[in-house]
Amino acid sequence: MPKRRTRTDPAAAPCPCGSPKVYGGCCARLHRGSAVASTAEELMRSRYSAFATGEAGYLLRTWHPRTRPQHLDLDPGLEWLGLEIVGSTGGSPFHQEGTVSFRAVYRDGQEEGELRENSRFLRADGAWTYVDALA
């Protein structure tokens, strides 16, 4: 008799952001709108997870209105493999702005690459938003 594959619940899988929590108890709460990021780093991690899980709507909602694109097409062939936070400034629950430097590893087909960015975040209507990448 052939073995039946069991479908893994994505909410029970490890969170793509690298936290020790499962996705359902970490970034999925932000993606669903049942929680908001309390720090710039938490927003950055949730945005990385949104790229990894295909949550384009969340990415647009958490983009600062001044720099938000009209639409966002995610590349379904891109696989995000890991996130490393390199450093940050500001961005606490008591700040209005902050930066988060990170390194994200991805696979595009058979080729691996990395994205390094120093992202800038501002509060808009009290919520953390992604503004842009600093040069």
Rank of each mutant, 00 (worst) to 15 (best):
N118W: 02
T6L: 14
A12F: 01
G126H: 04
H95W: 12
C26A: 02
A56M: 12
V105H: 06
A50K: 00
Y23A: 08
R47V: 06
S88V: 00
V36M: 06
G126V: 07
R32E: 14
Q70V: 13
V131K: 09
L83F: 01
A12G: 08
P16A: 14
R5M: 11
L43V: 04
P2W: 11
F121G: 01
I85F: 01
G98D: 04
L122R: 05
W63G: 06
L59V: 09
G33N: 11
A28N: 00
Y58S: 13
D75E: 14
L43Q: 10
G91Y: 04
P14W: 10
S92Y: 09
V131A: 10
W80K: 10
G24Y: 02
S34L: 09
A40T: 05
A12H: 14
A40K: 03
R32F: 06
T129C: 15
A28R: 07
A50Y: 04
K21L: 14
L59I: 15
R103D: 06
G82H: 08
L83G: 00
S88M: 04
T99S: 13
T67P: 11
L43N: 03
A37S: 14
S19E: 07
R68F: 01
L74H: 02
A104M: 07
S92L: 09
T39V: 02
T62V: 04
K21H: 15
H71I: 00
F121P: 00
A11Q: 12
C26I: 01
T89K: 14
R5F: 08
